[in-house]
Amino acid sequence: MSDTALPALPSPAPRRMGHGSFWIVTIIIGLLVALALRGLGSEYGYFAATFVLQYIVLATAWNILGGYAGYVNFGAAAFFAAGAYTTVAMGKALGLSLLPCIALAALVGGALGFGTGILTLRLRGAYFAIATLCLSVVLQTLVVNWDYVGGSRGAYVLRPREVPWPFDGYSGLLCTVMVAMAAASVAISRTIQKSRLGLGLTALRDDEAAAEAAGVPTLKLKLIATSISGAMMAAAGAPLPYLGSYVEPNTAFGMAYAVNAIAMPLIGGMGTWSGPLIGAVLLASLQQAATVTISSAANLMIVGVVLVGFVCLAPHGIVGLFRGRR
């Protein structure tokens, strides 16, 4: 267990970027990305970018629990779909637009994460993994049987016609929102990694009993991590209904989200804020390219093979390869 993920390097103080400056740099990079996409202005460009960006949020969120604390969540799709269906239900019931829906989705996801954590986090890691898998099935059953959000037939969500000034279309708006969420999630992830919370999570990942004995409030930290991670995953899913104008349970709860959420941090390097970012950009772009050029079944195959290959041969991911060489 000791070397399952990279230790958070206590880098020398002068070289370390403070939280404030990291947030500012992230905001600037986010703005640049948004402007570049606006300059490109193509509908497919927006779609592909939104696809990659939503995976950055999902992978980063998974990493907060899976990478820092070492608890594997197989139910990423459940949280993601919870976010998507919050948008559907709230949009239908209260007529809310996207941004309040994202906030509500984050609340729902956080509560869901907290609940799952309460039920299972006292147990060994494998039980938590299995419980999250079950959560996925239970939620899917509930949604399939819930006629208000379309049941198994799925639900249509109409994009608003009017788009505020700086955007050239609703896809552009969605994409910009996603850029903001991706930037925020990376910054949150780094802030957590470098804070006391991150240190505590790393300690309990390496040896839970020792951490507890040393005075780390393990259960509390794990619950905080599960809630934050769940909230971010649900927020990532909230724009999904607008992206395709249609959601149905089988795609929203699709295995692709769960497997990608695990594969991306593993490939990039777990336990660091940069790992999921690298993994998500690489793997999601690869999948977009494969979907366009080969077929959508092939792109899932690529994810599976890359995941197993990396887990076997480079267990610390791409970040680990570079650190090992130094």
Binding site: M1, S2, D3, T4, A5, G66, G70, V72, F74, G125, A126, A129, M255, V259, I262, A263, L266, M270, L300, M301, V303, G304, V305, L307, V308, V311, C312, P315
Partner: peptide
């Protein structure tokens, strides 16, 4: 290597997917 916990789970998850 004693890495069963996370990597092993991900390994079987990947096998299932493949």
């Amino acid at each position: 290597r004693g890495d069963e916990a996370i990597q092993g789970l991900a390994f079987f998850f990947g096998i299932m997917f493949i």
